[in-house]
Simulated assay, not measured.
Amino acid sequence: MSFSEGSVLLQQTDGNGHTALDLTSETTQREELLHSAHVGDSALRNFSTEVLNVPLLEAASSLLANLIFTYRREQGLPHHGDSLSLTLVRALETHSPQKVTSGWTDRRVVRLVEDAETLLELGRGGYLGQMSQAVRECKEENTLFLMEILEDFKYRGEMLLADL
């Protein structure tokens, strides 16, 4: 299955290499995720300024926010002021995550480096810039919550960058 840029979040994996689609066992939820990705891809291509299916956006926002929030709570993430995080950030400023983790066998530690790279990218505004204007301006509860989570990640990334 191939995804385009708008569905990049569906390509993210957990520590075992599973995507959100791999972890979703119910057919209806899988279909909702795939449909949301398709709608998001279409919106990005068309630069839509209007949400065409608010209930679908709300369902997808709720599911995605829950996945991100649960991952953050269970895995832990690098944070501002942590000496390990500072070391990782410095390494990632000059090397790719693959080069930093080359030869490492502990998957949890490799995942920590990947998380640090994601936070750095969020701190630079990378992923938020991929959101359509319509989604960013949506005032529905679940979508607002998702945007708050993404903004929090952006803030955490900015704080990691500020430590350099």
Results as ranks from 00 to 15, higher is better:
E158C: 10
D115Q: 15
A162K: 00
S85A: 11
L119K: 07
A91P: 00
K139W: 12
D41M: 06
L150Q: 02
G123C: 03
V110I: 07
L122W: 10
T13C: 10
D41G: 02
H35W: 13
E158R: 11
Q11G: 07
R72I: 12
L34S: 09
L33G: 01
E141P: 00
R30W: 04
A116M: 05
V8K: 09
F153C: 11
E158I: 12
E151A: 15
R30Y: 05
V110H: 04
S2E: 13
L120N: 01
V39G: 02
D152L: 15
K99P: 00
G125F: 08
G40P: 03
T28M: 08
V54A: 06
F153T: 06
M147P: 00
S102Y: 15
V109Q: 07
L21I: 02
S62F: 06
E32D: 10
T118P: 00
S36N: 06
V109S: 08
D14M: 09
R90N: 06
L21S: 00
G125L: 13
V110S: 01
V51F: 01
L33A: 04
A65W: 05
S7G: 14
G76E: 01
E31D: 12
Y155D: 05
F153H: 01
H79V: 13
V109I: 15
Y71N: 13
Q75F: 14
L128E: 10
L120R: 02
A116K: 01
G129T: 09
D82Y: 11
G125Q: 05
D106C: 14
T27S: 12
T13A: 11
E58Q: 08
V51Q: 02
S4N: 06
V113W: 01
E137K: 09
T49L: 12
L112R: 05
D152Q: 11
Q29L: 15
D22P: 00
V109N: 08
Q133H: 15
A162M: 10
K154S: 11
E93I: 14
Q11W: 01
G15N: 04
L92Y: 01
S2L: 12
Y155F: 15
M159Q: 02
Q75L: 15
